[in-house]
Design a protein around this nucleic acid. Structure first.
Lengths: 139, 139
DNA sequence: TCTTAAATAAGAATTATTACAAATTAAAAA
DNA sequence: TTTTTAATTTGTAATAATTCTTATTTAAGA
C-alpha cells in the first residue's frame, strides 16, 4: 500500500496523520509476520531512527482501539500485532513462535453460519478467530 | 476432584508429587475462571501461605509442558491458565477481561471433521481453539 | 533409613509495558 | 500564511509480569 492509502485510513478514523503513525501502520502492512512492538521499532528505525518506544506502544493501542490493527495473542509474553483486520485465522507453533495467517473463506462461512443459527445466550459476538496450534513442517 | 485424583495425574506424567504442585493443580480444577499466576497464588495462600512466586510460575510451566494445563492467551499482559484440557473454546470480553468456557460438541465435531478433510500443507495440527470475542450481556 | 536428583524458597534481575511531564506538531481557525 | 490549540511525541522513570540464580529442602527409589 502506498503512503496515501495509509493516510486515508488514518483520516477516516479521525486520527491525526503523523509520520510516526504512517510509519507504524505502513510497517504492519508490509511485514506480514505478526510483529511485536520491538520488531516494529527495529523495522522502522531504518527510515525513522528516533522514534520513542512509548510512542510505538501508544500508537499501536490507538490503532487497536480504532479497529485498524488487531492484537494477536500467543503463549509468549510479548504481544504481537496484525495489520490484517478481515476475518482470518492463525497457524501457530509454540515451539518456534512462528505465526502464519490461515485464510479460508469456506471455513469463515461455515463458522459465521454456525454462530448465526446457534444463539449463545448472554453474549454478543464481535469477532471469532481460530488458533490452530501445531508444528510447521519442512522449515 | 479429590487430592488422590490430583496425585494420580502427577504420577502418570512422572512428576514428583509435592504439596505445591497438588495445591496449584487443585486450585486450577476448582477455580474455573482461567486465573493468572497471581490469582492462583492468592487462592492457595489460604491453605498454603508460604509458596514462592517463582515456584508458581515454574510449576505452571511444567504443567503446560506436560499437557495437564493450558495457557489461555488474551489481549492482556498477564497469562491466564486453564485446568480443562479437553477440546473447548472461550468467550472473551476484552473490555472486562472476563473469560468463559464455551463447550460445544457439535462445533468440535464440525471443526475436527473439517480439518480432517482439508489438508493444510506444511502444518501438523495439534490443537484448535476458537476465541470468541465480544460482550457479555446482563452481568 | 539413606541417598540423590529434583524441586522449592527468597530475592535479585530482566523484559514488556505504562505513566508522566515537558516539548513538539498537525490541523483548524483567523 | 500565520496563529492557536488540542493532540501527539519524547525521554525517562515507574510498574508489572516473569525469569534467573543459588542455597536449601524434600520426594521417592535403593
Amino acid at each position: 500500500m502506498q503512503i496515501q492509502g495509509i493516510q486515508k485510513i488514518l483520516r477516516e478514523k479521525g486520527l491525526k496523520v503523523t509520520p510516526q503513525r504512517v510509519a507504524i501502520l505502513g510497517a504492519l502492512h508490509e511485514m506480514h509476520n505478526h510483529p511485536t512492538a520491538e520488531m516494529i521499532i527495529e523495522h522502522i528505525r531504518e527510515t525513522y531512527p528516533n522514534i520513542a518506544m512509548g510512542t510505538v506502544y501508544n500508537i499501536l493501542e490507538t490503532f487497536v482501539r480504532h479497529g485498524i490493527v488487531n492484537k494477536v495473542n500467543t503463549d509468549e509474553d510479548a504481544m504481537h500485532y496484525d495489520g490484517v483486520t478481515s476475518m482470518h485465522h492463525h497457524l501457530y507453533s509454540p515451539e518456534t513462535g512462528q505465526i502464519e495467517d490461515y485464510m479460508d473463506e469456506q471455513l469463515n462461512k461455515m463458522l459465521t453460519d454456525y454462530f448465526q443459527e446457534k444463539n449463545i445466550t448472554n453474549f454478543e459476538i464481535e469477532k471469532i478467530s481460530l488458533q490452530i496450534k501445531g508444528k510447521f513442517i519442512n522449515n
